[in-house]
Design a protein around this nucleic acid. Sequence first.
DNA 1: TGTGATATGTATGTTTTATTACATAAAATT
DNA 2: AATTTTATGTAATAAAACATACATATCACA
Lengths: 287, 287
Amino acid sequence: MNIKEQLESPPSELTPADRKLVRVLLNNFPTSGLKTIAQLAKDAGVSDPSVLRFIKKIGFSRYSDFQSALVKQLDERLKSPLLMHSKSGGIDDDPWQHTAESTMDAVAGSEPLVIKQDIEQLVEWLSEKNKKVICFGGRFSGFLAGYLHAHLQILRPNTKCITSSLELSDTLLDLKPGDIFIQFDYRRYQQSAAVAVEMAHRKKAKVVLFTDIYDSPLRNKVDLTISSLVDTSSPFDTLVPAMVQVEALVASLTDTLGDSVKDRLMEVDDMRELLGTHYFSNNQQEQ
Amino acid sequence: MNIKEQLESPPSELTPADRKLVRVLLNNFPTSGLKTIAQLAKDAGVSDPSVLRFIKKIGFSRYSDFQSALVKQLDERLKSPLLMHSKSGGIDDDPWQHTAESTMDAVAGSEPLVIKQDIEQLVEWLSEKNKKVICFGGRFSGFLAGYLHAHLQILRPNTKCITSSLELSDTLLDLKPGDIFIQFDYRRYQQSAAVAVEMAHRKKAKVVLFTDIYDSPLRNKVDLTISSLVDTSSPFDTLVPAMVQVEALVASLTDTLGDSVKDRLMEVDDMRELLGTHYFSNNQQEQ
DNA sequence: TGTGATATGTATGTTTTATTACATAAAATT
DNA sequence: AATTTTATGTAATAAAACATACATATCACA
């Protein structure tokens, strides 16, 4: 229920003090309601208890309840412009179109979640070619881990992507302090992720987590988090924003590595030429 | 001065605790900053004083100053709803930003390349659960093949993803007329793709090709092509538009399959519950 | 491996803030 | 005009929130 409406159509008669309060609250709604009782009372020219009584009259038992409701509504209002996609054009019950559009929204919405400093930090870590880099992910996000790894492999030595549980334990055992462990873990969080992160953390590796929300239970075992939205209109979550981040990361790293990587790229091309384009890597994905 | 910018480009280096706070604050900006110090500290997983120190670092002498600034900015933003509160122009030599943006362009540019009839056709084919579906891709695009397969596997039986050359030949031999062979092949086309498509075509399978816009030599052996752009500012190509297509395809298929798939999704969830969340599939990616 | 510097948390003091109880003022009613 | 009813403010209090000092832990570097 809209608080503005609650203010405008109260359940019972308003007293003069109430009316003063309504005027103040409505006159730059809703931020005026974020103040303290004392401030609000002063602005309206009434006493503190009058504020309390009014708040109770419109249906909140505590002042803080009123404020939280206000903030919640504020949040929705701030988020709506993004979520309101393509109100122009006809009805789209076309799931393809619909999914594609809401995926774009997710990408746009994920952009502000990225913290420049985090990226810089991560790129710096990844530039240290003598440190190992391990990529690992879940059922779906595992492909992103592989995708990142496929790029990293070209840019630097000492990278690995974990694709089986045996490999996981072996690799974790070998981790040295300062190595980088990159974990992908999105909604429907997987226990293997928690275990891996915990172990990597114990080994004093730098743990990087690509995930969808910040409040992952892994939070305090993780040195750096890169988060993205996963919600779409589809029954499945989207990993497109995450993939954008992976590609952007690769671009940043390439940029930082500079010319040294050009040579390596050449070499890779030459070698592919020699080996023919038909080889498969050990057990992961093919060339 | 914009507080968001202040958060993103602090005057001095950020400590780990600072970064946690930045993330939380940015995550639900700006309402997350309206909380009390204690709540904010708890959300970020740091202590109260860390919050205070951070607030001082970004230029506020008291916490309440920070909050007032936040509210003030909030007010402005609410008064000018669509005044583009995203990034403030500026030079764009940041490769991350640059790549992300040009990737979005690629996605937008790929949209008109999709032909609705093709999608409908493909969805129809994939709805035939008695036909086999084989996914296959290249060095990078192989992950997309895997990603598609991981979804298809949930939606229907008889799906397979090829991850090694042995598997490739065996699987191709077993193809029956009417089976569906989905090939991903993007710039730096790979010979394995040509061979596979040729074979699948001879076996009278339906060959679907996900590729980029340039005419692939495979075009005439292929029954259906879904193309996307791969160019970005990054030295590497992007597969993001292709991934959007894969997800949109999955959404369309889910929509078409309707309720029958709901039950299957339930079953999958139940089974995951029973098996625990820690198993790995044979050699591909883990659960 | 030890040492200085930095970062972070714990404990604590001080101020605000919300809330209640009660007294006073205003209004309505007879 | 007196009395009841309603509205409002004052003052007290308990809870919480902010802020600080200090101790501990962590990190960087020699």
